[in-house]
Design a protein around this nucleic acid. Structure first.
Lengths: 202, 202, 202, 202
DNA sequence: AATGAATGAGGCTTCATTCAT
DNA sequence: CATGAATGAAGCCTCATTCAT
């Protein structure tokens, strides 16, 4: 909201709380997380934590807002004037990188959606839907121009979301099944093949 | 576990509790659900509920076990002797049907994995991994025989999981973005196109 | 509200809680009272207390409602067809008896009003006002008929309230100033003289 | 207590705190008021407020002491050598004016007494009782001399207190029942009639 | 097989007060 | 004089679980 000037100590503690909250909420969900855990992880006493954020919910909401601010950037960046297939592929790859680099954020988001999106239902049917619809127009244009194969744009976007986020959200399962921790390179190659095969026109 | 003989009323109440637990746990997660909610939904008093299941955790565990019993059936059913592409496609379609018909089970499972799979970690690296590895051999065999394109079998399976379960787990988001509740037919057509394009050999 | 059938133990515990709550709230006010105090006084554990009343506020509200149910009975009983002066005098005496017999109730009410009547503002401008207005008509009729001296009925009623409730509400002060605990007889004689002097016609 | 020399800013801030405290304590009682509220109302930070008064209790006590300093002035002013009835009547009228002009002080006092006068019990049975006893002698003298009707002096004083303070302490109720905010003129006329009728000798 | 009653542990939050600057 | 930061104690309430019948 308003960017009140913050002292250094405030900035530091708020950041520590958000990090601790992200750790905790992304693993245990909102109800499964306790202020004690978060305070402990942030290195603060519980009342001191509540000096920076008025409530547990406020921490959670702040995290979600910060997340939404950047979560859609890769999709926004998909450029109607670029090379269609490369635009889509690089969107998917950026999403995959985010699953590697920001898995907690991905799980926080997944948790929120799983529970019915109580905090961000409005965002989903508002900003998000609008953005997806806009990009769907772009994709449909590419298909009409014969630059990519004919494909349902909305479900293509769902596919990219699910294929990439899966590696963050189902991380435990992925690693258990693969028997190793490093999935990134193989997943990238696989997704590249999967999507290109579908998108190549003709 | 052991199938103790049950009176009719016992069977009925156990079933009611499991249904109520599935409703509740899949929506609110383990920590977010209360025995009061579940008892209310099952039409039982709380102590009576605990007469059938000794603890909250026992209900949750029973649900997970019941789920795991059938969750992999479609994958198990993938037949090395069938037509490769049709086997894979029909596996994907069965999974999509499950997202439509058993979304609560899907979300229950997703919740468990998101939290780090505390109850079923052993299953993931045991039974599940073994099954996937077996099927990977089959798929690799099909590819070696030139019956399908060359594809990483593990990541292909991850793709099928994520693509299909997404419709159950991220249901709220899917419906918000589409602006309508009915995603099944379009999703089926889309996934069919996506996977076939990748699997068709050479 | 609805008089749900209660077991003996329920009736006993609810009564104990209300008594304890009356003791505590009437002395310390709503905010100044703690559930610990009330539970202790009622001989129950705190969670058990909350098994009978869902919240601190619910106890307080139940007490206020029970109070309002009977608080106005003496005024209601003032009979338009009785002897005017005796009706008014016996109303005042009944109120004085209530200050002697139910001082905690009087202080509970005084506390609520002092704080701006947050729970019963509606009652004051609704039922209470209506009742007072009705009785004011009666009193005005008596005066018009020459049966009592001309007097402002509303302020007469305020006078009776204040004169009598004072002995309960300012009990500590009354006893400190008198240097003795027994004020009832003298107060009764004094109020009789005070009011009769004013009411006698002519 | 001791009038320490104060800088102008100190005097100003102490005054602001006392005003804020009076506002808050008179409305919410001691326990119902928070230092945050008072600090906010005084326009000071909480630690700064505690620089001027060492504790919440100190503010409350200071207010009570300041109140007691002037609360009894009208009674003290009742002059044995004046005209008896006019002395008593003007005492009552001054008290009524105080209810109009200083309702917060009246409610603060009422609150304290309702709670059992924990801070001023000594004052009640000391200074106050002594003063009332002195004035009772005066009143009894007037009656013995036939200048006023025979009346119990202590209860007469209680009557004046209750009749007048009622308008401040039960202000919400008075306004709700009257349906208007302005009670002063009518109350004055009413009390005049009520008391004179009783005091006029034989 | 069922329920009314009870509770210990824990969770979120408030608040008077203190510390450091 | 003044304030940002911090905290221990307490308060209300929830909840899984147990007890008694």
């Amino acid at each position: 909201m308003s960017d009140k000037p913050q002292t250094r100590i405030q900035a530091k503690n708020r950041a520590a709380i958000l990090t601790a909250g992200l750790d905790t909420f992304s693993q245990f969900g909102f109800r499964g997380s306790t202020l004690d855990q978060i305070a402990e992880a942030a290195g603060l006493s519980k009342p001191n934590l509540l000096y920076y954020f008025p409530s547990k919910d406020a921490i959670y909401t702040a995290l979600l807002e910060r997340l939404l601010d950047t979560w859609l950037d890769p999709l926004i960046a998909m450029n109607a004037d670029g090379d269609p297939i490369e635009e889509i592929m690089s969107y998917a790859m950026r999403k995959l990188e985010m699953s590697r680099d920001y898995p907690r954020e991905s799980r926080l988001f997944a948790n929120e959606i799983l529970q019915g999106a109580p905090h961000i239902a409005g965002h989903l049917s508002g900003d998000l839907r609008k953005l997806v619809d806009e990009k769907a127009v772009v994709i449909r244009g590419w298909a009409a121009a014969g630059k990519i194969a004919d494909v349902d744009p909305h479900h293509l976007i769902f596919s990219i979301w699910s294929l990439t986020q899966h590696y963050a959200d189902f991380d435990v399962q992925v690693r258990a099944v693969l028997g190793k921790d490093d999935w990134y390179a193989d997943a990238g190659a696989h997704l590249d093949g999967l999507l290109r095969a579908r998108l190549l026109p003709g």
